[in-house]
Protein backbone atom coordinates (compact mmCIF):
# COMPACT_ATOMS: atom_id res chain seq x y z
CA UNK A 1 0.00 0.00 0.00
CA UNK A 2 1.36 3.40 -0.93
CA UNK A 3 0.42 6.41 1.08
CA UNK A 4 1.60 9.96 1.08
CA UNK A 5 3.45 9.19 4.27
CA UNK A 6 5.56 6.52 2.70
CA UNK A 7 7.17 9.11 0.51
CA UNK A 8 7.39 11.86 3.08
CA UNK A 9 11.00 12.78 3.76
CA UNK A 10 12.17 11.36 7.06
CA UNK A 11 13.68 14.67 8.00
CA UNK A 12 10.63 16.84 7.30
CA UNK A 13 10.88 19.67 9.78
CA UNK A 14 7.76 21.28 11.14
CA UNK A 15 6.78 24.45 9.42
CA UNK A 16 7.45 27.01 12.08
CA UNK A 17 6.93 30.47 10.69
CA UNK A 18 6.83 32.40 13.89
CA UNK A 19 6.01 32.31 17.55
CA UNK A 20 2.72 30.70 18.42
CA UNK A 21 0.17 32.98 19.91
CA UNK A 22 -0.13 31.61 23.40
CA UNK A 23 -3.30 33.44 24.32
CA UNK A 24 -5.10 32.18 21.23
CA UNK A 25 -3.90 28.63 21.95
CA UNK A 26 -5.14 28.72 25.48
CA UNK A 27 -8.50 30.09 24.45
CA UNK A 28 -8.99 27.07 22.24
CA UNK A 29 -8.66 24.44 24.97
CA UNK A 30 -10.95 23.78 27.92
CA UNK A 31 -10.54 26.39 30.66
CA UNK A 32 -8.09 25.49 33.33
CA UNK A 33 -7.00 22.43 31.46
CA UNK A 34 -3.97 22.97 29.29
CA UNK A 35 -0.60 23.98 30.58
CA UNK A 36 -0.75 27.55 31.80
CA UNK A 37 2.55 28.87 30.51
CA UNK A 38 3.05 31.18 27.59
CA UNK A 39 5.59 30.33 24.95
CA UNK A 40 7.89 33.04 26.25
CA UNK A 41 7.97 31.41 29.68
CA UNK A 42 9.27 28.08 28.45
CA UNK A 43 12.95 28.95 28.36
CA UNK A 44 12.93 29.98 32.00
CA UNK A 45 10.96 26.90 32.98
CA UNK A 46 13.27 24.57 31.08
CA UNK A 47 16.27 26.23 32.66
CA UNK A 48 14.77 25.66 36.06
CA UNK A 49 14.05 22.01 35.21
CA UNK A 50 17.74 21.55 34.45
CA UNK A 51 18.76 23.25 37.66
CA UNK A 52 16.40 21.03 39.66
CA UNK A 53 17.75 17.93 37.90
CA UNK A 54 21.27 18.91 38.88
CA UNK A 55 20.16 19.50 42.46
CA UNK A 56 18.63 16.02 42.55
CA UNK A 57 21.91 14.77 41.14
CA UNK A 58 23.58 15.84 44.38
CA UNK A 59 21.56 13.24 46.30
CA UNK A 60 23.59 10.33 47.68
CA UNK A 61 22.88 8.05 44.73
CA UNK A 62 23.01 10.78 42.10
CA UNK A 63 20.58 10.62 39.22
CA UNK A 64 20.33 9.90 35.53
CA UNK A 65 21.57 13.32 34.55
CA UNK A 66 22.20 12.83 30.84
CA UNK A 67 18.79 11.50 29.87
CA UNK A 68 16.99 13.90 32.19
CA UNK A 69 18.69 16.88 30.60
CA UNK A 70 18.03 15.62 27.08
CA UNK A 71 14.33 15.26 27.99
CA UNK A 72 14.05 18.55 29.83
CA UNK A 73 12.78 20.66 26.96
CA UNK A 74 10.31 18.02 25.79
CA UNK A 75 8.88 17.64 29.29
CA UNK A 76 8.73 21.38 29.78
CA UNK A 77 6.69 21.91 26.63
CA UNK A 78 4.43 18.93 27.37
CA UNK A 79 3.68 19.86 30.96
CA UNK A 80 3.38 23.61 30.49
CA UNK A 81 1.75 23.86 27.09
CA UNK A 82 0.33 20.60 25.83
CA UNK A 83 -1.00 18.14 28.37
CA UNK A 84 -4.52 18.83 29.62
CA UNK A 85 -4.12 18.26 33.32
CA UNK A 86 -5.60 19.39 36.59
CA UNK A 87 -2.87 19.26 39.24
CA UNK A 88 -5.52 19.71 41.94
CA UNK A 89 -7.40 16.71 40.51
CA UNK A 90 -4.86 14.29 39.05
CA UNK A 91 -7.56 11.72 38.27
CA UNK A 92 -9.67 14.18 36.23
CA UNK A 93 -11.54 12.00 33.74
CA UNK A 94 -10.92 14.22 30.73
CA UNK A 95 -7.18 14.54 31.26
CA UNK A 96 -4.37 13.64 28.92
CA UNK A 97 -2.24 10.74 30.09
CA UNK A 98 1.54 10.83 30.21
CA UNK A 99 3.80 7.80 30.64
CA UNK A 100 7.50 8.28 31.26
CA UNK A 101 8.56 5.07 29.57
CA UNK A 102 12.20 6.02 30.07
CA UNK A 103 11.59 6.00 33.81
CA UNK A 104 15.21 6.74 34.64
CA UNK A 105 14.57 10.37 33.62
CA UNK A 106 12.48 10.65 36.77
CA UNK A 107 14.31 13.74 38.01
CA UNK A 108 13.16 15.78 35.02
CA UNK A 109 9.61 14.51 35.51
CA UNK A 110 9.63 15.42 39.20
CA UNK A 111 10.83 18.90 38.27
CA UNK A 112 7.90 19.57 35.94
CA UNK A 113 5.44 17.94 38.35
CA UNK A 114 6.67 20.35 41.02
CA UNK A 115 6.43 23.30 38.66
CA UNK A 116 2.83 22.36 37.88
CA UNK A 117 1.97 21.92 41.54
CA UNK A 118 1.41 18.16 41.63
CA UNK A 119 4.01 18.03 44.39
CA UNK A 120 5.70 20.67 46.53
CA UNK A 121 9.03 21.94 45.33
CA UNK A 122 10.43 21.25 48.80
CA UNK A 123 9.79 17.56 48.25
CA UNK A 124 12.39 17.54 45.47
CA UNK A 125 15.05 17.76 48.17
CA UNK A 126 14.03 14.27 49.31
CA UNK A 127 14.91 12.75 45.94
CA UNK A 128 16.25 9.22 46.30
CA UNK A 129 16.60 9.59 50.05
CA UNK A 130 15.14 7.15 52.60
CA UNK A 131 11.39 7.56 53.02
CA UNK A 132 11.00 9.65 49.88
CA UNK A 133 8.25 9.22 47.30
CA UNK A 134 10.75 10.38 44.70
CA UNK A 135 12.56 7.19 43.73
CA UNK A 136 15.13 6.80 41.01
CA UNK A 137 12.26 5.57 38.86
CA UNK A 138 8.74 6.99 39.28
CA UNK A 139 6.38 5.40 41.78
CA UNK A 140 2.68 5.37 41.09
CA UNK A 141 1.86 6.73 44.53
CA UNK A 142 3.19 10.12 43.42
CA UNK A 143 0.41 12.46 42.25
CA UNK A 144 0.67 12.92 38.51
CA UNK A 145 2.38 9.59 37.87
CA UNK A 146 -0.03 7.30 36.01
CA UNK A 147 2.16 4.19 35.98
CA UNK A 148 5.41 3.25 37.67
CA UNK A 149 8.12 2.80 35.07
CA UNK A 150 11.79 1.99 35.02
CA UNK A 151 11.96 -1.36 33.32
CA UNK A 152 12.24 -0.27 29.71
CA UNK A 153 9.84 -1.26 26.97
CA UNK A 154 6.63 -1.08 29.01
CA UNK A 155 5.38 2.45 28.46
CA UNK A 156 4.12 2.28 24.92
CA UNK A 157 1.89 -0.72 25.62
CA UNK A 158 0.44 1.07 28.64
CA UNK A 159 -0.17 4.25 26.66
CA UNK A 160 -1.66 2.24 23.80
CA UNK A 161 -4.10 0.58 26.19
CA UNK A 162 -5.06 3.97 27.58
CA UNK A 163 -5.52 5.46 24.10
CA UNK A 164 -7.56 2.49 22.95
CA UNK A 165 -9.77 2.64 26.04
CA UNK A 166 -10.30 6.40 25.76
CA UNK A 167 -11.32 6.03 22.17
CA UNK A 168 -13.65 3.09 22.78
CA UNK A 169 -15.35 4.95 25.62
CA UNK A 170 -15.63 8.18 23.66
CA UNK A 171 -13.39 10.26 25.89
CA UNK A 172 -11.37 13.19 24.66
CA UNK A 173 -8.07 12.54 26.42
CA UNK A 174 -4.88 11.61 24.66
CA UNK A 175 -2.00 9.35 25.71
CA UNK A 176 1.65 10.41 25.48
CA UNK A 177 4.67 8.20 26.11
CA UNK A 178 8.23 9.47 26.29
CA UNK A 179 10.69 6.80 25.24
CA UNK A 180 14.44 6.72 25.23
CA UNK A 181 16.09 5.85 21.95
CA UNK A 182 18.14 3.03 23.43
CA UNK A 183 14.85 1.75 24.85
CA UNK A 184 13.71 1.06 21.30
CA UNK A 185 15.95 -2.01 21.38
CA UNK A 186 13.32 -3.63 23.61
CA UNK A 187 11.14 -5.84 21.45
CA UNK A 188 8.00 -5.06 23.42
CA UNK A 189 8.14 -1.47 22.11
CA UNK A 190 7.53 -2.82 18.64
CA UNK A 191 4.73 -5.11 19.77
CA UNK A 192 3.01 -1.97 21.02
CA UNK A 193 3.92 0.04 17.94
CA UNK A 194 2.42 -2.63 15.73
CA UNK A 195 -0.81 -2.78 17.71
CA UNK A 196 -1.21 1.01 17.91
CA UNK A 197 -0.53 1.34 14.20
CA UNK A 198 -3.04 -1.37 13.43
CA UNK A 199 -5.75 0.32 15.46
CA UNK A 200 -4.88 3.74 14.04
CA UNK A 201 -4.72 5.31 17.48
CA UNK A 202 -4.39 8.95 16.54
CA UNK A 203 -4.91 9.93 20.18
CA UNK A 204 -1.55 8.31 20.96
CA UNK A 205 1.81 10.06 20.77
CA UNK A 206 5.20 8.45 21.23
CA UNK A 207 7.98 10.96 21.81
CA UNK A 208 11.44 9.52 21.27
CA UNK A 209 14.26 11.30 23.08
CA UNK A 210 16.78 10.66 20.32
CA UNK A 211 19.95 11.61 22.12
CA UNK A 212 21.91 8.89 20.35
CA UNK A 213 23.64 7.54 23.43
CA UNK A 214 23.14 4.61 25.73
CA UNK A 215 25.33 3.33 28.54
CA UNK A 216 27.96 1.73 26.35
CA UNK A 217 28.07 4.56 23.82
CA UNK A 218 26.36 5.38 20.54
CA UNK A 219 23.07 3.63 19.87
CA UNK A 220 24.26 3.00 16.34
CA UNK A 221 27.42 1.28 17.59
CA UNK A 222 25.47 -0.81 20.09
CA UNK A 223 22.48 -2.05 18.09
CA UNK A 224 21.60 0.52 15.46
CA UNK A 225 18.16 2.12 15.27
CA UNK A 226 18.31 3.83 11.90
CA UNK A 227 16.50 4.37 9.68
CA UNK A 228 14.32 5.19 12.64
CA UNK A 229 11.64 7.25 10.91
CA UNK A 230 11.16 4.57 8.29
CA UNK A 231 10.81 1.97 10.99
CA UNK A 232 8.02 3.84 12.74
CA UNK A 233 6.27 4.64 9.48
CA UNK A 234 6.41 1.02 8.41
CA UNK A 235 4.49 0.20 11.60
CA UNK A 236 1.67 2.52 10.52
CA UNK A 237 2.74 5.62 12.40
CA UNK A 238 3.02 9.19 11.24
CA UNK A 239 6.39 10.63 12.13
CA UNK A 240 7.60 14.12 12.82
CA UNK A 241 11.23 14.96 13.32
CA UNK A 242 11.99 17.94 15.44
CA UNK A 243 14.85 19.58 17.26
CA UNK A 244 14.12 18.38 20.77
CA UNK A 245 15.67 21.49 22.26
CA UNK A 246 13.78 24.03 20.14
CA UNK A 247 10.95 24.96 22.46
CA UNK A 248 8.92 26.77 19.81
CA UNK A 249 9.33 23.93 17.35
CA UNK A 250 8.28 21.36 19.93
CA UNK A 251 5.31 23.51 20.84
CA UNK A 252 4.26 23.74 17.22
CA UNK A 253 4.55 19.98 16.71
CA UNK A 254 2.48 19.21 19.79
CA UNK A 255 -0.07 21.88 18.90
CA UNK A 256 -0.87 20.21 15.60
CA UNK A 257 -1.59 16.67 16.78
CA UNK A 258 -2.47 14.28 15.43
CA UNK A 259 0.04 14.69 12.68
CA UNK A 260 -2.05 12.48 10.42
CA UNK A 261 -5.67 11.64 11.28
CA UNK A 262 -6.08 7.91 11.72
CA UNK A 263 -2.48 7.28 12.71
CA UNK A 264 -0.54 7.42 15.96
CA UNK A 265 2.21 10.02 15.92
CA UNK A 266 5.87 9.38 16.66
CA UNK A 267 7.72 12.57 17.48
CA UNK A 268 11.37 11.86 16.90
CA UNK A 269 13.05 14.56 18.92
CA UNK A 270 16.71 15.05 18.12
CA UNK A 271 18.38 15.79 21.41
CA UNK A 272 21.77 15.93 23.06
CA UNK A 273 22.46 13.84 26.11
CA UNK A 274 23.32 16.14 29.00
CA UNK A 275 22.01 19.16 27.07
CA UNK A 276 22.54 22.51 28.72
CA UNK A 277 25.53 21.54 30.83
CA UNK A 278 28.73 21.62 28.76
CA UNK A 279 30.37 19.25 31.21
CA UNK A 280 27.88 16.54 30.27
CA UNK A 281 26.79 17.35 26.75
CA UNK A 282 27.14 14.47 24.33
CA UNK A 283 28.96 12.37 26.90
CA UNK A 284 27.91 8.82 27.61
CA UNK A 285 29.30 9.14 31.13
CA UNK A 286 26.54 11.64 31.87
CA UNK A 287 24.11 8.70 31.99
CA UNK A 288 24.16 8.41 35.76
CA UNK A 289 26.09 10.89 37.86
CA UNK A 290 26.39 11.76 41.53
CA UNK A 291 27.27 15.41 41.75
CA UNK A 292 29.62 16.43 44.54
CA UNK A 293 29.17 20.03 45.77
CA UNK A 294 32.11 21.05 43.58
CA UNK A 295 30.80 19.23 40.51
CA UNK A 296 27.36 20.73 41.09
CA UNK A 297 28.88 24.23 41.15
CA UNK A 298 30.79 23.56 37.93
CA UNK A 299 27.64 22.17 36.30
CA UNK A 300 25.59 25.17 37.41
CA UNK A 301 28.22 27.59 36.17
CA UNK A 302 28.14 25.86 32.81
CA UNK A 303 24.35 25.79 32.74
CA UNK A 304 24.09 29.50 33.53
CA UNK A 305 26.81 30.40 31.04
CA UNK A 306 25.07 28.45 28.31
CA UNK A 307 21.81 30.20 29.18
CA UNK A 308 23.41 33.64 29.07
CA UNK A 309 24.88 33.05 25.66
Amino acid sequence: MTTALDTAPATAAPDVTGPVDGAAREAAVPPGAAGPAGLADLADLAHEVRELVLRMGTSPHGTHVGGSLSSADILTVLYHRVLRLRPEDPAWAERDWFVLSKGHASAALYAVLAQRGFIDRAELDTYSRPGSRLAGHPLRRLPGVEFPTGSLGHGLSLASGVALALRRTGRAGRAFALLGDGELQEGSVWEAAMTAGHYGLDNLVAVVDRNGLQITGSTEDCVGLEPLGERWRSFGWATVEVDGHDLAALDEVFASLPHTPGRPTAVLARTVKGRGVPLFEGKKKSHSVQLSPRLFQRAMTGLNARRAR
Binding site: F147, S157, L158, S160, G161, L164, A165, S188, A192, T195
Partner: peptide, 9 residues
Protein backbone atom coordinates in the same frame (compact mmCIF):
# COMPACT_ATOMS: atom_id res chain seq x y z
CA UNK B 1 0.61 -3.64 29.10
CA UNK B 2 -2.35 -2.76 26.91
CA UNK B 3 -4.73 -4.41 29.37
CA UNK B 4 -3.16 -2.54 32.27
CA UNK B 5 -3.55 0.72 30.37
CA UNK B 6 -7.18 -0.04 29.65
CA UNK B 7 -7.86 -0.99 33.27
CA UNK B 8 -6.27 2.23 34.49
CA UNK B 9 -8.95 4.19 32.63
Amino acid sequence: GVSAGMAAT
